[in-house]
């Protein structure tokens, strides 16, 4: 019987050999965080192995590391550890307002939210678009409010420039870090905030040039090159079309015909 027992022990030992080689999951599970400078002061940035996943201004968490970490854990359901430096490319992206190919980790968002953020990411520095424009770009023209709340849940503000989405009536609209920060960001990008306001006061939401017969959003860099004598204001794109204008191919105000 002794041989039998030994044999069994040997079979058991052979089973233990089925164990795989070592694996290290820590890098996949933990987010890394640190602070980095931005146009609106220090910001907290967190990233995973896939890219930047969370950003908050120091101001919004009262400069309190623990408050940031609590928000991060609530939002991502992930533990975090401190990193020595931010992921490559974050500092220049924040400085320039152009994230370019900076990898972002947007897991945990719905398809709709991700689509909203992807459309928003294409708005150039120094320009703004209405919420409805974003809704049109993702083929959900009536989901304007849903677009606004998706932008409110943007996990990586500044990097995905949700501050560049404003209200169609010229109002600056809401922002995760408050309207004042939004306005500060837009002015830092040299958006013609005051001009847009003045135009809205006269119910002008689009600008055209009578030399090119092209109509734009007032913040479009083509609109801003139109000299005073050639500038034509419009309330709607339909009105501009009737006057013989075509929508700009850069800022694409086309769908907003109402």
């Amino acid at each position: 019987m002794a041989t039998g027992e030994d044999d069994l022990a040997r079979v058991a030992r052979m089973l233990a050999e089925l164990a795989p080689g070592p694996v290290d999951l820590t890098g996949r599970l933990f987010a890394q965080w640190c602070t980095v400078g931005s146009p609106v002061g220090e910001v907290y940035v967190a990233s995973t192995d896939r890219g930047v996943c969370y950003l908050r201004t120091g101001e919004s968490v009262g400069g309190d590391d623990q408050r940031f970490l609590e928000q991060l854990r609530d939002r991502l359901g992930r533990p975090a550890r401190r990193a020595a430096r931010p992921p490559a490319g974050v500092a220049p992206a924040l400085r320039s307002g152009r994230p370019g190919r900076l990898p972002l980790d947007l897991r945990g968002l719905s398809d709709f939210e991700r689509a909203v953020l992807e459309a928003t990411a294409r708005i150039p520095v120094g320009e703004t678009r209405p919420y409805r424009w974003v809704a049109e770009r993702i083929a959900r023209p009536t989901a304007v409010r849903a677009v606004a709340s998706a932008l409110g849940r943007n996990p990586v503000p500044l990097l995905i420039p949700c501050h560049r989405v404003t209200r169609a009536n010229g109002d600056i609209g809401g922002y995760v870090f408050g309207g004042q920060v939004k306005e500060r960001l837009l002015r830092l990008e040299d958006v013609n905030v005051d001009e847009v306001n003045d135009l809205a006061g006269e119910h002008v939401y689009f600008l055209g040039s009578d030399t090119t017969n092209i109509v734009c959003f007032p913040t479009c860099h083509h609109a801003r090159r139109i000299t005073e004598p050639h500038r034509q204001g419009f309330r709607t794109i339909a009105q501009a079309r009737r006057a013989g204008y075509r929508p700009c191919k850069h800022c694409k105000p086309a769908e907003l015909a109402a």
């Binding site: 164990a19 795989p20 070592p22 694996v23 999951l25 820590t26 599970l29 933990f30 533990p79 550890r81």
Partner: peptide, 12 residues
């Protein structure tokens, strides 16, 4: 972090 270090091999 310790939990992961201790048991990742088992879970894997």
């Amino acid at each position: 972090a310790e939990l992961v270090r201790e048991y990742q091999q088992l879970v894997y």
